[in-house]
């Protein structure tokens, strides 16, 4: 298990843009499972949407990217890169995510290198697929 303090040591994102609370499973070089508790207190629910609070798909993609960064950092511990930039993303969304949900992110490595990686991504709520796809990001 990786708690929020270790997550903060590994990736540069901070409130209000830290999209993971905890890592529950890690297979170095292969996969990671992390989750975020979705709370109505999040600022973006004021506008997305006022009468129907819905977790933005863009933030689901961000949660996936952050989990993939964690997997990369834990798999290549001497990696000097501190910043990560998504360069390609293809995600299909199946379910809306709302306050009270626990969003689980599962990332599997397709190709991992020191300059970046290609990952298979999945977001689950109650073990049902809410979104899935593929993303590539570069390390700087």
């Amino acid at each position: 298990m990786i708690d929020i303090e270790e997550i903060k040591r590994l990736i540069p994102q901070r409130y209000p843009f830290l999209m993971l609370d905890r890592v529950v499973e890690l297979k170095v070089g292969q996969s990671i499972r992390a989750y975020k508790n979705i709370s109505i207190n999040e600022e973006y629910f004021k506008g997305h949407f006022p009468d129907a609070p819905t977790f933005p798909g863009a933030l689901t993609a961000e949660a996936m990217a952050q989990a993939a960064c964690l997997l990369l950092k834990k798999s290549i511990p001497d990696l000097k890169a501190t910043l990560f930039y998504v360069t390609n993303i293809k995600i299909r969304f199946f379910k809306t995510i709302t306050p009270g949900d626990q969003l689980h992110i599962i990332i599997k490595t397709i190709k991992m290198t020191r300059i970046g990686g290609v990952f298979e991504t999945q977001a689950l709520v109650n073990d049902e697929v809410a979104a899935k796809g593929e993303m590539t990001f570069a390390c700087k």
């Binding site: 390609n88 190709k111 290198t113 300059i115 970046g116 590539t136």
Partner: peptide
């Protein structure tokens, strides 16, 4: 093309032909 596209091509080659190409 940029370096990340090259990485995606490498990943796709590995997947298609079930091979492992070093970084």
């Amino acid at each position: 093309m940029d370096s990340m596209m090259a990485l995606e091509i490498l990943a796709a080659m590995e997947k298609k032909y079930r091979i492992q190409i070093p970084e």
